[in-house]
């Protein structure tokens, strides 16, 4: 390894830190919902402020995708795909995380709901 290599590594680390700082500063806080998209169409919205254990079945490209949510987090439990990448990814809970299930064309994003702080009924 020579001097240029170390400089390259230094620059990568700094770029990494700058991007992380950016994500931190712009992370949305508030009432969170997980939105499930199939081929870019929203097919399901999960209220993550409800902490109880819940199961959802969504139709993916290869068949059924089982999504579960609990404690403000959401994950894919079962899916029909060769590598099961998105069920291996596990839980996500922050607004810059995404689960992408390529074979099933399913994307799960965490977003803030409607921008409202509360609803009176």
């Amino acid at each position: 390894m020579n001097k240029s290599d170390f400089k390259l590594i230094g620059i990568i680390v700094i770029v990494f830190l700058i991007i992380m700082l950016g994500f931190r500063l712009f992370e949305k806080k508030g009432e969170k919902v997980a939105r499930v998209y199939y081929q870019n169409e929203m097919v399901l919205e999960i209220d993550l402020s409800d902490k109880s254990y819940r199961e959802y079945n969504v139709n993916g490209y290869n068949g059924n995708v089982l999504i579960i949510s609990e404690n403000g987090k959401v994950r894919v439990k079962e899916e029909i795909s060769p590598l099961h990448l998105c069920s291996k990814q596990g839980w996500i809970d922050s607004s810059y995380e995404t689960i992408v299930c390529l074979p099933n064309k399913i994307i799960i994003k965490i977003e803030t709901s409607q921008d409202l702080d509360a609803i009176v009924r």
Binding site: N2, S4, D5, L8, I9
Partner: peptide, 9 residues
């Protein structure tokens, strides 16, 4: 001036 390691990165 990167070495092969730098190029690999």
């Amino acid at each position: 001036k990167l070495s092969i390691i730098g190029v690999s990165i």
